[in-house]
Amino acid sequence: MLVHGAVYARGLRRYSTYRAATLAGVLTNSVFGAINAMVLLALFGARPEINGYDATDAVTQVFIGQALIGVTLIISGPSLDLSTRIRTGDVAMDLLRPVPLQSWWLAQDLGRATFAFAWRGLPTFAVGALLFDLAAPDAPLATVVSLLLVAVLGFALRYLYTLSGFWILDVRGLWTLMGFVGPVAAGMMLPLALFPAPVADVLRLLPWASLVQIPAEIYLGKDTLPGGSALGGLALQAGWATVLLGLGAWVTGRATRKVVVQGG
């Protein structure tokens, strides 16, 4: 665990040097949030309530989504340096470390996510609160736990995308696809409550929804959560985190064998 603490701190420090990029990120996320919010305000101007969401709920979720882009990196390209290391073969060295590959990168990515949340997520949300009426959190404590799980889940998903590089030569296609399908399925582009109910119900149970939709519902205190409460939502997130990290560990094992057999 000591090693992981050091790796976490390194991730945190390393990303804190990207000040200009972080500022630009806040700008981009705020602009997109504002555009999205205005479209939704126009929509709710025509229909005051849709499936338990009103305009304030929807705009709040939009900014929760934008604030979490930097944490989850759900939109941008291969964010883990790991994908470069897989392409160049340097990953063989990582596999030789006594610390498991996945937990090493998890620690580093959580460091990065912490920085992104503090300096990119919170300011983006603050801009949203300045420009629009946002709701206050319904269950602050549950929201905090949920956000922690978001960081873990965001990593676990990207780790799996990245490891596909061991088998797919060019992962850019996969990233393009995931960069667009992910945000929709997560409820980042639009709250899932606006989708036709059967579609929304299915999407809510997929791992991507646990990145934005579920935490947003916990924040807003919605009864559409599994079991109708924040606890149910947290259980769903934790369940996916366990499954995806387990899958990640299994795939790491397969990849290691592949590297050992083929010599990198």
Binding site: R172, G173, W175, T176, L177, G179, F180, P183
Partner: peptide, 14 residues
């Protein structure tokens, strides 16, 4: 083909 599919699906999503 994969990248084109990615682009098409992105339009579909949007």
């Amino acid at each position: 083909a994969l990248m084109t599919t990615g682009v098409v699906l992105s339009v579909v999503a949007e």
